[in-house]
Amino acid sequence: MTPSRYFIFCLRLLLRQRREVALPLFFFLIVLSLFPMVFPAKDLPSLAPAVLWITALLSILLSLNNLFREDVEDGFLTQLLLSPAPLSSLIAMKLLAHWIAYVLPLFIALPLFGLWYRVPTENLLVLASSLALGTPSLLILGAIAAALSAGLKQGGILLMLITLPLATPILLFSLTITDMAANGLSYTAPAYFLLAMAIVSASLGPLVISASLRISIS
């Protein structure tokens, strides 16, 4: 088992599971549709970034529920553990595939979101870049929680409870970006923070996740 072969394996599996993969995206769209129904139209543009981010946060965490559960149940995780390739490199591939399957579609849904919330295109681009910068660390943080709660009965809700408080900085930095952009300020400072967090979590995350999985399976 090599990392590249495992990456293709993950992508193929996710493609085959596309019906399940689509569910968090449906969730994302349904929750997004609720706010315009209950809030007056004039408030929507100012609410838009926060609503988008919180909805994205929840749907990504929802998608992580199944990240390791199946692998624990069907015994696949033991094969990952015993593979000659380092576990962390395989985990990194799995996360990359997961990002492509679950997070990338959120970007594709952005034009629709812009239409619903009357967000102009240039603001959508800022939102998209905040998502691009923030979601990697979010995914990795959630994956750590998923690894720690893998195989537990209440794993799904536990994953949310563990991750949400720890994810506040990602949420706040991202909204600082959109806030500053809306006020015509340069938003490089919060963007660099998110980038730094993404780099640190991408380099340390897979190691922490591997160690957490070893604990979970022991």
Binding site: M1, Y6, F9, R12, L13, D74, G75, F76, T78, P84
Partner: peptide
């Protein structure tokens, strides 16, 4: 030396064919 472990769980993915499952270990 190296060894292979086959647990009491099969570690195969139901959505993939036997060949696709095995190709992970040998291309």
């Amino acid at each position: 030396i190296h060894y292979t472990y086959i647990g009491h769980k099969n570690a195969i993915k139901g959505e993939l064919s036997p060949i696709e499952n095995l190709k992970l270990y040998n291309p």
